[in-house]
């Protein structure tokens, strides 16, 4: 299915949890936060929240800043 990942079109398996999606991206789980359609997905929910067609997923982390 098609989703948006950090603003860019991306493809994801048809049935996939946030945890599996992050894993498929090779994304470290530590120090990141995930938002799905502007709602935060708490880490404890990664295994149960599933992506749906057209979801807008944001994955963010800390970078240098003032």
């Amino acid at each position: 299915m098609n989703v948006f990942l950090n603003g860019e079109p991306a493809s994801a398996p048809d049935v996939v949890t946030v945890a599996a999606f992050l894993e498929s991206l090779g994304m470290p789980l530590k120090g990141v936060a995930v938002e799905r359609n502007r709602e935060i997905v708490p880490k404890s929910m990664y295994g149960s929240v599933r992506l749906t067609e057209g979801d807008r997923i944001e994955i963010v982390q800390f970078v240098g800043g003032g």
């Binding site: 990942l5 950090n6 603003g7 991306a10 991206l25 090779g26 994304m27 470290p28 120090g31 990141v32 936060a33 944001e58 994955i59 963010v60 982390q61 800390f62 970078v63 240098g64 800043g65 003032g66």
Partner: peptide
């Protein structure tokens, strides 16, 4: 130390991460 929050670069996951250099246990982020 102040820090910013930005999108992870999905295409370049191997890049250096802030947390690898400034330990959040040692510095208050």
């Amino acid at each position: 130390v102040t820090v910013a929050l930005r999108r992870v670069n999905v295409a370049d996951k191997g890049s250096d991460r802030l947390v690898d250099h400034l330990d959040p246990k040692r510095f208050t982020y």
